[in-house]
Design a protein around this nucleic acid. Structure first.
Lengths: 251, 251
DNA sequence: CGCTATATTGACCTATCTCAATGCTCGTGG
DNA sequence: CCACGAGCATTGAGATAGGTCAATATAGCG
C-alpha cells in the first residue's frame, strides 16, 4: 500500500486517517503468487478488485490462433479496475510476470469509500482516468510510432510510473520483462525487439542487463520515444483537495 | 439523451424518475457544432463533461510531425470522460466529424448523481469501464490484427455500438467516416484502407457508399475481424439493480 | 554440470507504405 | 442548369520497415 499511497499523493495529499483506511484495506486479505501465473482469466466473473503490493503483472488478450497482446502493465501500487466487479465477465486476463503480492479489495470497501471518504473516492477516479489515458497513449503508440520510438516510449512510461511509486534508484530500476514480453506489448516480433534494444543500447539511451534497466539520460530517451508525460497527469492536480486544506469535505 | 438512456439500459433498467434526471441534464445546456471542428483541444483545462446527443466525433492525438491517431469514436449517447474535470489538462483533443449536438454536463450534476442517484452512478461506472475495455481492444486491434481483420473489427464495433443506441436500420446505418478517418483510427495509410475496403466489398462483407454502410451478414463480418463482442458488455449485467427490483437502493 | 529459457545473428520475405497520377462527387456560384 | 473546384476515392509502381525461419550463443537454475 505504500506504493499506492505514494502514487495517489501525486494527485492529492491524504490525511493520516485516510492513510490508515488504505493501509487496513491493503493488509487484510493478502496473497502471494508465483511468477508467470494467471491471476484472473478472460471469461471469469470478476470478484474482488486486486491491488498490486509488490511485483509486476500484466493484462493481456489473446486470439484463437495464439497471437497475444499485452494491453497494460500492472506495477506496485496499481489497482486492477476500481469497481470492476460491476461487469459480468472479464474481457481479458491478468497474469503475473514476477512473483507478486496482492491485496484483494472487497466491493464493501469501495462502497464505504464512496459513501464516507470522498477524497479517497476522488483519488480513485483519478487513478481510473489516468489508466484510461495510458490506454489511449498505447493506442497512439501502436498506431503511429516506429518500432524504435514505440519501444523507447514504453520504457519511458514504465520508468516514470515506477518513479511515482518510488521504485527507481538513481538512474536504474528492476526490469523483469523479457524481450518476449516487450514484443507482446509493442506488437513487434521478438527478433525485432532484440534489434531495437541493441539500437537503443548503441545510442547510449539505455543499459539493460540481467533484469536491471538503467536510463542514463531520461530526457534523451524521451526525445527518442517522442514521449510527452502529460498523459500521466503526475502534477498534483487535486491539490485543492489536500488534507488540511479541505478537511470539511472529508467529513 | 434518448441514445444515452437506451445505451445505459443495456446495463441497468432505470426508473421514470431517473430518466427525468438524465433528460433534464441533457436539455439544459445544448450546443450545436459544425463538422470537422475541435470541441476540446489537448492542453486545455477540462471544464464540463460533454454528452453527444447527435452526430459523430472522435478523440485523437497528434505528434509534432503531424502523425495523427484517432483513439476512439464518440457516437450519440456517449459521454466524454465522466468526472474528466478532475484532471488539470486534456491529454488529447476531441473533434467533430459530422455536425454534432452536445449537452454540457456540469460538475454539480455529477456530484448530485454521486450523492443521490446511486443507480445512475453505477450506470456511469459501467460506461467508464466499457470505454476502458474498448480502448484495450483497440490496443489489441492495432498490435495484433492484420489490416483486413483490423478494419473489419472496427466496423463491427461501430455497428454494435450504433445498434445499442438504436441507430441502425435493418442491415444499414449512416457512416460519415472518410477513408482518411479510418486510416487514422486503424494506423494504416489511406491507400491501404482503400484497398482493404475493396477487399471487404469484394467478399460481400460490406456495402459502403455515399456515407452509408450496410452489413449483409454481421456474423461473417465478425468472423473476418476475429470479433468477440464480450468487451462491449452489452448483456444487462446490472439487472439486479433494475428499477423496481431495487427501489430501496434508489432512495 | 547440464537443462531450459532467453537472447542474438543471418538470410530472406512480405504486408504495408509512399509517391504520384487520375477519376469521381457533390456543393456553390454564375 | 451547368461548370468548376475541393475534397475524396482509386490505381499503379516501386520502396521499406518489420516479419519469419532457423541456427547459435548465453545465462540462470536445480
Amino acid at each position: 500500500m505504500a506504493s499506492l499511497i505514494r502514487k495517489l499523493e501525486h494527485f492529492v495529499r491524504l490525511s493520516p486517517a485516510e492513510h490508515a483506511i488504505l493501509d487496513r484495506a491493503a493488509t487484510e486479505r493478502v496473497r502471494k503468487l508465483g511468477p508467470r501465473v494467471d491471476l484472473v482469466r478472460e471469461g471469469e466473473k470478476p470478484r474482488d478488485v486486486h491491488l498490486i503490493l509488490s511485483g509486476w503483472a500484466c493484462r493481456y488478450k489473446q486470439l484463437e490462433d495464439g497471437r497475444r497482446q499485452v494491453v497494460s502493465f500492472l506495477l506496485p501500487g496499481d489497482i486492477c479496475d476500481v469497481n470492476g466487479f460491476i461487469l459480468r465477465e472479464m474481457d481479458h486476463s491478468i497474469g503475473s510476470i514476477t512473483q507478486v503480492t496482492i491485496a484483494d479489495l472487497s466491493r464493501e470497501f469501495f462502497d464505504e469509500v464512496g459513501a464516507r471518504h470522498p477524497r479517497i473516492a476522488t483519488a480513485f477516479w483519478w487513478e481510473t482516468l489516468v489508466n484510461a489515458a495510458i490506454q489511449r497513449e498505447w493506442t497512439m503508440n501502436l498506431g503511429q510510432r516506429t518500432a524504435l520510438e514505440r519501444t523507447a516510449h514504453l520504457l519511458c512510461e514504465i520508468w516514470l510510473r515506477l518513479s511515482m511509486a518510488e521504485l527507481t534508484r538513481g538512474d536504474n530500476c528492476d526490469f523483469p520483462l523479457t524481450q518476449a514480453d516487450l514484443a507482446d506489448a509493442t506488437g513487434l516480433s521478438k527478433v525485432h525487439v532484440n534489434r531495437i534494444l541493441q539500437e537503443l543500447r548503441a545510442a547510449g539511451l539505455i543499459v539493460l542487463k540481467s533484469k536491471t534497466l538503467a536510463v542514463p539520460d531520461l530526457a534523451r530517451l524521451m526525445r527518442a520515444g517522442l514521449f510527452n508525460p502529460n498523459y500521466l497527469h503526475m502534477d498534483r492536480e487535486g491539490r485543492q483537495l489536500d488534507a488540511g486544506s479541505a478537511d470539511i469535505a472529508a467529513g
